[in-house]
Amino acid sequence: MNQPSQQQQPPGHQAAMDPVPDCGEQSYVGHDRLTGKRALITGADSGIGRAVAIAYAREGADIVISYLSEDDDAESTAQYVRDAGRKAVLVKGDLSDPQHCRDLVQRTVDELGGIDVLVSNAAYQMSHDTLEEISDEEWDHTLATNLSSMFHLVKAALPHLGEGSSIIGSSSVNSDSPSPTLAPYAVTKAGIANFCASLAQLLGPRGIRVNSVAPGPIWTPLIPSTMPPEKVEQFGSDTPLGRAGQPVELAGAYVLLASDEGSYMSGARIAVTGGRPIL
């Protein structure tokens, strides 16, 4: 057993989880890899997005923290960014709305003076045992939140992205090995991987790099708020490493892709899956 049986209402809150996920609050040490960069991170209030925000700040970046509704989690993330001596801007709103995506990019430019790194990470999922359980509205909302939002964010950001900028999409092991109970989510994660591969070729001539990270089972608020308690209890136990990953264990991949150390990395997908292969 990896974690106790538990359940929350979506979108879930990090502070209410048992155990509370490790986003690097006490452990991540920066090495000036992102000094002076300006990053927009969606879903940055908790989970992977929070780990990325903390790491980026400790590496020297200013951060716009995009989140849906979890004010306490978002403010906690912002405090870690400020404690690192960097600027934190909180922007609340629903990424399934194309206009909010455009407004979010403009707010980033206005508040930070530009944008160098875009991390499209926010996601919605829900577990269903049959296709009939998935409503039209849920299907449309999942695609709008996870996949279409990245299109709108990238399109809005492009006029502000210069040579050396980086776009990173959060894909998933589900992009290659889809869980049948997460069908809409898996479709979007395959789409993100594919979209990033297309963008890497489209934007390479402009000096803009585009990559994706494919997490395996990671312990985030998405899990207890979208899966039945018995699945939460066993979450991650079927990986070769035998456990769910912690958000901080992905931070290094996102830092590499955003940094100048990844200057020849574009069109890549980094698997952080606990041993589940992505070939």
Rank of each mutant, 00 (worst) to 15 (best):
S5P: 01
Q6M: 10
Q14G: 00
A16E: 13
M17K: 03
P21M: 08
E25V: 01
Y28H: 02
G30C: 07
H31M: 11
D32C: 06
D32Y: 05
D32E: 13
T35Q: 14
A44S: 03
G49A: 02
V52M: 02
V52Y: 01
A55Y: 10
A55Q: 08
A55K: 10
E59I: 11
A61R: 03
D62A: 15
I65C: 01
S66L: 00
Y67H: 11
E70N: 04
D71W: 10
D71N: 14
D72V: 12
T77S: 11
T77W: 00
Y80E: 14
R82P: 02
A88T: 00
A88R: 01
K92L: 00
G93W: 06
L95N: 02
D97R: 09
Q99V: 13
V105I: 15
Q106R: 15
R107F: 01
R107Q: 14
T108Y: 06
V109E: 02
D110Q: 13
E111I: 02
L112Y: 03
G113D: 10
D116I: 06
V117W: 07
L118P: 11
L118Y: 10
V119T: 12
V119G: 03
A122D: 08
A122L: 03
Y124H: 13
Q125M: 15
M126P: 00
S127M: 12
S127Q: 12
T130D: 14
I134N: 08
E137Q: 15
E137M: 10
E138D: 14
W139Y: 13
W139G: 14
D140K: 09
T142I: 15
T145K: 00
N146H: 09
L147Y: 09
S149R: 07
S149Q: 05
F151C: 03
H152K: 01
L158G: 10
G162A: 14
E163N: 14
G164R: 12
I167M: 05
I168C: 04
G169S: 08
V173S: 13
N174H: 15
D176L: 11
S177E: 04
S177L: 13
A183M: 14
A186C: 10
A190W: 01
A193Y: 05
C196E: 05
L199P: 06
L202E: 13
L203H: 10
P205T: 14
I208G: 12
I208K: 15
I208T: 11
I208S: 10
N211D: 13
A214P: 06
P215L: 08
W219S: 10
P221L: 01
P221Y: 00
P221E: 03
I223Y: 11
P224F: 03
M227I: 05
P229T: 02
E233C: 09
E233F: 07
G236F: 06
S237W: 03
R243M: 09
A244N: 13
G245M: 12
L250G: 07
G252P: 07
A253I: 03
Y254A: 09
Y254Q: 07
V255K: 00
V255W: 05
D260R: 07
E261G: 06
E261K: 06
Y264C: 11
M265V: 12
S266H: 10
G267M: 01
G267I: 06
I270V: 15
A271S: 15
G274P: 12
R276F: 07
P277E: 07
